[in-house]
């Protein structure tokens, strides 16, 4: 079981937004967003459509009691071209550092093609064990969502999301 508040919090965080960011986009107060997320209040019915649009989901999904699936396999008819997808890297360190990188998948694909020709990148110790082609292939096959979720013992959080 998952409440609408939990889902709003999940989608907001997965997009690297703060409560203030979401509040600004919906023209409500940050306190209102906080109340939604803590299940103290519910968003106005008129806000459900903008909310779902903002989160790239449906009102049905927001209102259903099913838990949010962090990784989804899209049915063939719903698969969009890779050009429309975004790779998001979200890092929240324990020290308070915040990193948000939003890259179009199309650009990532081209950059990887170029990167493979650069020895400094292609032979990089940290990168050579990652099969980027497989990741691209996975995305092209319709797998989207939170592909990487790391929470270290120090409290550092790293998420890689494709949406």
């Amino acid at each position: 079981m998952s409440s609408i508040g939990t889902k709003i919090a999940f989608y907001r965080k997965s997009r690297g937004m703060t409560q203030e960011d979401l509040a600004e986009k919906l023209r409500v107060s940050a306190q209102a967003v906080s109340k939604w997320e803590n299940d103290i209040a519910c968003p106005d019915i008129l806000l459900l459509a903008p909310l779902s649009k903002l989160f790239g989901t449906t009102t049905d999904e927001l209102l259903s009691a099913d838990s949010v699936k962090s990784v989804r396999l899209l049915p063939e008819n719903e698969r969009s071209d890779i050009k429309g997808l975004t790779l998001k890297v979200i890092v929240d360190s324990n020290d308070g550092d915040k990193v948000r990188i939003n890259l179009p998948m199309e650009l990532v694909k081209v950059a990887l093609e170029i990167g493979s020709k650069i020895p400094q990148i292609a032979n990089n110790e940290h990168l050579k064990n990652i099969d980027f082609e497989q990741i691209i292939l996975m995305v092209e096959s319709g797998v989207i969502g939170k592909l990487v979720e790391i929470e270290s013992a120090d409290g550092d959080i790293v998420n890689v999301v494709v949406e």
């Binding site: 020290d95 308070g96 915040k98 990193v99 990188i101 939003n102 179009p104 199309e106």
Partner: peptide, 18 residues
């Protein structure tokens, strides 16, 4: 350029350190 046409003012990088 193509992406910029579709998503104006796209936020590519936003890093804030402690």
């Amino acid at each position: 350029k193509n992406y910029k046409r579709q998503h104006k003012r796209w936020e590519v990088v936003n890093i804030s350190s402690s």
